[in-house]
Amino acid sequence: MARIVPRTEMTLVEKAYIPEIARGLKVTMGHFLKGFFKPESIPVKHYPEVEPFVPRDYRSRHRLMKRPDGEPRCVACFMCATACPANCMTIEATSSDDDRIEKKPSKFEIDQLVCVFCGLCVEACPVDAIRMDTKKMAFAADKRETFKVGLEDLMDWDPKDYPESDIQSQKAPGGTLNAQARKEWGLQ
């Protein structure tokens, strides 16, 4: 059923146009003067010099979690690669040195130009080995190859950049819980 939306008639003053122009000029001048005399009132970030606030659960660049001994937590089960809608993950498995664990990845590559940052890989992982909480959201490089990040890149993170309450991160080498975790794992 068609619904007729009544148009509001313009008043005589509005039709005369000139007063409305004056009103518009007043608005723009207001914004100009405010920005001119109080630049801090302009709602812009001085990016990239000033870092914007990125919440921890923002889906940013991936990282691979580490065991207390620094090995990747990943068990090369291919769940993430299967879940990935963009098909941008390439994983190759090899047998693990630790006899408690069957496999580990020998190659773990994510093509970030293809990735759609959906986070499904994180959801799929059964051992919480892949996360997207690095807060890294700016990607720039001059070669396509640079966007393909491998095992080393993905594991290159520092527990100090993660909060104390993030127990899994703190158990990795360099973290506050590492010594304790190593003991539990029977290392030394």
Binding site: H31, F32, G35, I42, V44
Partner: peptide
């Protein structure tokens, strides 16, 4: 710069 200040940019 005038345009950007009018549009609340820098």
């Amino acid at each position: 710069r005038g345009a950007s200040l009018i549009q609340d940019r820098l």
